[in-house]
Amino acid sequence: MKLAETDTKPAWCPGCGNYSLLKTFDEALEEAGVDRHKLVLVSGIGQAAKLPHYTRGNVFNGLHGRALPAATGIKLSNHKLEVTITSGDGDMYGEGGNHFLHAIRRNIGVKVFVHDNQVYGLTKGQASPTSDLGMVTKIQKHGVMSLPFNPLAIAILEECSLVARSFVGERDHLRATMVAALKHTGGFALVDILQPCPSFNKQNTFKWYKQRVKPVGDDHDPRDKEVALRLALRWGDEIPIGVLYRSERVSFENQQTVLAEKSLVEQYAAAEGGIS
């Protein structure tokens, strides 16, 4: 059956935060001077994970929850590539939760953008790891009972290289935060992006976020772990956004003696040419 005509792009709902997120992402790539030929857009599965198909670059759209290990393999094969991950709260913090914990420990130099709308979109409205307590869905019909996962606090405890949060409703802030992540050279960069899901999350709406997000001041020192952690734990009436934390760790790829000069891809090409 020919469904090519009806297979419209993007596959997102009207009013989805992903539209402005995609536009801002493209602007940020431009502003950070990323060469699209050296860019690998890695994703898993979910509505956010479709983003790589709607922009330009090399694409690895892999399995649900497995963007991080795939991106780790790509970055270690060719650490001269810019490797980004576009993921959702289910993909990154649920299905991929174990990889999230360990990729930050490793401090692999990938830039992770999580479209966090606190709900499952593609499977139509179940709770996600970041859904607020009490949120009622067709599955969690007596309300969510599990405590929400706090990705930023966990990342800070693991001394993640860069930890940030932004909101699709604050486009300048989002662009600046994305650029900070793209320009970051110290290792793993996490940007958790708050985003409404007009179809399935009737609780955390655009207005709900807009009234609560508050950029951290210029006087915030992201090197201060304790302050960063306090900001990450704040949720409810006020949600801090911005670069909350930066650590001084050396990226995983930069600790590899084998990668001191050339990437594995470069080394292979050189050896392949040299030996029959």
Partner: peptide
């Protein structure tokens, strides 16, 4: 999945 990424690259 890491091996998949590495071979892709």
């Amino acid at each position: 999945n890491m091996v998949c990424g590495a071979t892709y690259a």
